[in-house]
């Protein structure tokens, strides 16, 4: 902050206190209990269909009892549980791949999207290309990416990167285009230069769309990662799922799937928190 502005002391709660108040409020509302009930309901249906009645469609699937016994076992039958190093290795490798690819996609995609929105000529050059490349399904890129890159690692990261890159570019571009013309006019009248308009109008004005885009692109990143790992991996959760299938270690498939779900949600949550932090102006606190 370049300037000191007087705040109202007293009305400003510390962020810890705010989080705590919100937390208490949330626990006092019915929603956490409904959330829990929904999850339990799902596990119950899963249990009944697989382990109680063994219904035809579900009779090959591991039930919750088999899965959680394996998951919580200190000496798991198939070598994957909370107590094994290997489990965390797979998680670590997948997360690291997604992290690298996502960071790269963001570092390239956001500036390109902003620039496309800022300079009409640049958009004219690039937009058709984006619109042709974007709909190509990630799986179609697998052979090319294996041919292009020397190792498996690089090609998996490349696939993951592609998945999130296009979504990031497109959402950033939409973000710039969503900015009301009046803000550009006001800035121009007040004497802002092109560069100042870029940093003070285009960048902050497109942030809401950018962060929505980043959440979507994070989802695509995990999607592409699993596809890549299934086809070309030696480690990672996607590889683990496919490998367990071929080795008929079915409970491990479920363990890896649930793990993917949880990590995916967490990564999305982190993006949302970063976004909220950067866009304080969107959070309507009590004035």
């Amino acid at each position: 902050m370049p300037f000191e502005t007087p705040d109202n002391p007293g009305t400003q709660l510390s962020s810890v206190a705010q989080t705590w108040t919100r937390m208490k409020h949330w626990l006092g509302s019915p929603s956490p209990y409904l959330n829990l009930l929904g999850l339990c309901g799902f596990v119950a249906v899963w249990y009944v269909t697989t382990e109680v009645f063994n219904l035809p469609l579900f009779n090959k699937l591991p039930g919750p009892k088999a899965t959680f016994t394996e998951w919580l076992s200190a000496d798991p039958l198939y070598g994957i549980s909370f107590y094994t190093m290997e489990y965390y290795q797979h998680i670590g490798i997948s997360t690291w791949r997604v992290f690298q690819a996502f960071m790269l996609a963001t570092a390239l995609g956001v500036p390109i999207g902003l620039f496309m929105g800022w300079k009409a000529t640049f958009k004219d050059y690039t937009f058709p290309l984006l619109e042709v490349l974007r709909p190509i399904p990630m799986l179609a890129w697998v052979p090319l990416s294996i041919l292009m890159w020397p190792g498996r690692e690089a090609s998996i990261i490349f696939l993951t990167f592609l998945g999130s890159f296009f979504a990031t570019v497109l959402n950033t571009l939409l973000g710039v285009e969503s900015i009301d013309e009046a803000y550009f006019r006001a800035a121009a009248s007040l004497g802002a230069s092109e560069k100042q308009i870029f940093y003070k109008v285009i960048v902050p004005g497109s942030l809401p769309f950018i962060f929505t885009g980043l959440q979507i692109s994070m989802g695509y990143a995990w999607f592409s990662l699993v596809a890549g790992e299934m086809l070309a991996g030696e480690f990672g959760l996607g590889y683990l799922i496919w490998n367990s299938y071929t080795l008929v270690q079915y409970p491990v498939i479920i363990i890896a799937m649930i793990t993917l779900g949880v990590i995916g949600s967490l990564s999305s949550l982190i993006i949302r928190l970063v976004g909220d932090k950067l866009m304080q102006w969107k959070v309507r606190e009590v004035a």
Binding site: T5, D180, A182, Y183, R185, A186, A187, A188, S189, L190, G191, K200, V201, P204, G205, L207, M279, W281, K282
Partner: peptide, 20 residues
Amino acid sequence: GPGPDRLVVFQETALFPWMT
């Protein structure tokens, strides 16, 4: 062109929402 010698107060508010 636009300039700070003629300033507009717009029909819809044009305060930058991301600035205090």
